[in-house]
Amino acid sequence: MNTLGDVHQEIAAPCTPLHQFTVPLSAARRGARLARLLATEQLRSWEIPLDPARLIVAELAANAAVHGRVPDRSFRLTLTVTVHGVLRIEVTDTRGESLPARRSAPLGPAESGYGLLLVEELADRWGVRGGPVPAKTVWAELDLAR
């Protein structure tokens, strides 16, 4: 079992939102696909570049649907754009005891887990925030003004 020491922890709350979008989704592959589609449309409406944000949404939503799934519980996607030009992507699921871990060694050919390596490469920052029990939120931020 992983501990919060294995991943970046969030210390402060995000800055004042300029735009915010939140939606609960079915904790299934279909919900993960819908998360990516809804995020794409929301980013378009805010005139924000689609990539790499939709790739990050796709990975975090897929992880929530596969690894964070609890029967009869949904996961939540939240997109926030701050006045400081940061896009924050959050995916909250109800498996707070199951935290993502940073990989210190390469994975073998039969192992999964490359998705969070992708998130780490694409995002400017990412981490996990526990609570409220039994939930956890995996988040990633993109600096839009680069």
Rank of each mutant, 00 (worst) to 15 (best):
L55M: 13
L77M: 11
E59K: 08
P100Y: 01
L117P: 03
A105V: 01
E97M: 11
V86W: 14
S104C: 07
A110S: 06
T92G: 06
A64I: 07
R73E: 09
D72L: 12
V91W: 00
R54P: 04
I56Q: 02
V66E: 13
E111L: 00
G113Y: 00
R95W: 14
V70N: 06
L60A: 13
A110F: 13
S104T: 05
G85R: 09
G108Y: 01
P52A: 11
R69H: 11
A65P: 05
V66C: 13
D72C: 06
P106F: 03
E111W: 03
I89F: 04
T92C: 09
R95C: 15
L79C: 05
D51A: 15
E59I: 12
F75T: 03
T82W: 07
P100F: 04
V70G: 02
A110Y: 10
V81R: 08
A101L: 05
L116N: 01
H67S: 14
G115H: 15
D93Y: 02
A110Q: 14
E111S: 00
G113A: 01
L118E: 01
R103H: 00
G115M: 15
T80S: 15
L87H: 08
D51Q: 15
L118D: 04
S98C: 10
S98K: 08
V91M: 05
A101K: 09
L117I: 14
T78G: 09
P106H: 02
H84D: 14
L99E: 05
N63Y: 10
V86D: 13
A62S: 14
T82R: 03
R88I: 04
A61L: 00
T94L: 12
S98W: 11
A53S: 11
R54K: 12
G108L: 00
S112L: 13
L60S: 08
R54C: 06
A65R: 01
V57N: 08
R69G: 03
A62E: 15
P106W: 00
I56A: 04
G113L: 04
R102P: 06
H84N: 14
V66M: 07
N63A: 07
A101Q: 12
V86A: 13
P52Q: 12
F75W: 05
V70I: 11
I89S: 06
L118N: 14
S74R: 13
A53G: 11
P52T: 10
V119Q: 09
S104E: 01
G85P: 07
P109E: 01
V81H: 01
G108W: 00
H67M: 15
A61I: 04
P71W: 10
A65D: 10
A65C: 08
R103W: 00
L116Q: 08
H67R: 15
T92M: 08
L77Q: 05
T94W: 10
P52D: 09
P106N: 03
L87G: 08
L55Q: 12
T80N: 05
S98N: 07
L77R: 05
P109A: 01
G96A: 14
G115Y: 09
G96H: 04
V91N: 01
R69E: 05
A61D: 07
S112C: 13
H67V: 11
P109I: 01
L99S: 04
H84T: 12
L79W: 13
L55K: 14
P106C: 04
N63K: 10
N63L: 07
R95S: 15
E111P: 03
L55G: 15
R54Y: 14
R103T: 02
H84A: 12
